[in-house]
Every structure is written in structure tokens, then in C-alpha cells.
Computed example of a mutant assay.
Amino acid sequence: MGVAIRRAVESDRAAVTRLLDEAFQDDPVSCWVFPDADHRRRTHHKLMGAFLDIVLSEGRVDLTEDGRAAALWLSVPAGEPEDHDGEDDGPAEMREAVDPDNERVELVGRLTGAVHPTGRAHEYLLLIAVTPEHQGEGLGTALIGSVLDRCDREGLPAYLEASNARSRRLYERLGFAFTGRPVDLPDGPRMWPMWREPQATSAVS
């Protein structure tokens, strides 16, 4: 039985923010950004909401009809990054909006940005979330697969950062490969940037 997927809109913001917050509360990267559990429970949703606002404005949020899973995608054009002199204000603005005294909010953005490929246009999976009680049911695979099918038809690569070994294995099964340059958060977990070349599709007459 297929998974019904639709594109999220602004009126879905509160529900999707709750979904992201719940799904990533215990993620290794979230725990590194917000090491104090009480502070994480109070603040983590702001970071998820900030990411969501960017994608609602500039990208695409795919949501299962039952609201149990969501995927946040950005279309990245080819070319050099705009911050040639290291003056990208995005991570600093994120920190100011989410948790001004927490330098890790800014640092994780700068470290992942430093390894993000710029040579070719691609689809960037910023976040994918499934409610904890429904993980392992194939919802995430269905969400990713719908975009990867389009990437294959259009000849577009895809990119993401795996934040734990379990998700890395899932992405490898979907055709992603580790780029060879990890992101090691200071005194924290490793992230695996992963790239997927478009795969040949069978012609249909």
C-alpha cells in the first residue's frame, strides 16, 4: 500500500515543527547543540522552526497525509558560495534567532556549510523526520524516494548529511555515498555528508 504525500503549506507550520522537534530531540547532533536536556526541551523547537521557515519560503516540504513524516528539501544551484570572504551571516542570524548565547547553533551551520558541494546543481535534503513510534515503517524511504525519482528523471544529483550511523545505512541503500570528508563536531558526534548521482531510469514507451 502506497504512502500518500502532499506538499506542506504555511498552515502546517505548527504541526511540522512539533514533528521535527519530537523526531530530533534525541538525535546526536541535537544533543550536541543543546547538551542540557532541560534547555533542549525548551529551545530545540525554535531551531526546528527556523529550518522549517527557510524551506517553506525557499524550498519544498513533503508531508505524509497522516502527518507522521516530513522531508525538507532545498534546490541548490550550481556555482560558488556567496560568502567568498567567509562573511556568510546565515549561521550567525540563526543563532541570534534561536539561542543567542549558544555558539554551537552557529558552529554547526558553519561546519556543514564548509563541506557542502558547490560545483553542480542538486537537491539538498536538509531534514527528514518520522515520529519515533512510526520509525522503521518505510515512511522516510517513501518521502525520499519520491524526490529521488524526480532527480533520476531530470538527471539531478542529491545531497544530505547523515547525523547517525543508522540513517547513513538507510541512505546508502538509497544510492547515497559518503563524500569522504566528514564533519566532526568539536567534542561531539560525526556527521557524514553524502552524495547521490542520478540513476538511469527505464524508458517507457
Rank of each mutant, 00 (worst) to 15 (best):
G119E: 15
M94T: 12
R173C: 11
W192C: 00
V33G: 04
P35W: 03
H122G: 08
W32I: 10
F24A: 01
E80H: 07
F24C: 00
A50D: 13
L107C: 07
M94F: 09
Q25Y: 07
D26H: 15
N164L: 00
V16W: 02
R6L: 07
E80C: 04
D38G: 13
A70D: 09
R41Q: 14
D21C: 03
G138I: 03
E65H: 11
S167G: 12
A97K: 11
S205T: 10
A129R: 00
A158C: 13
L20E: 01
G86F: 04
L125T: 05
V204N: 09
P100I: 06
D89V: 13
R166F: 08
D99G: 02
S167Q: 10
D21F: 06
E103I: 06
L56P: 03
W195E: 10
V204Y: 07
R150F: 02
A23W: 00
D62Q: 12
I5T: 06
T141F: 01
A4K: 15
L148V: 10
S75D: 14
V105G: 04
D184S: 07
S75I: 00
E137M: 14
S75W: 08
D85I: 02
D26N: 15
P193W: 06
A92V: 03
I5V: 15
V130F: 07
A50M: 04
L63K: 02
P157E: 11
E161Q: 14
A14G: 12
A4P: 07
L185K: 08
S146V: 11
L56D: 01
A158H: 05
P157H: 10
A15S: 15
A23F: 02
V183N: 06
E58D: 15
R68S: 12
V204E: 13
L52R: 01
L47K: 00
S75M: 09
V3R: 02
G59V: 08
L20Y: 05
V183R: 03
M1V: 15
D36Q: 15
R13S: 08
A162R: 04
R196L: 11
P157N: 06
L63G: 00
M48A: 09
P28T: 10
P198A: 11
E133P: 06
D149R: 12
V115Y: 07
R181T: 13
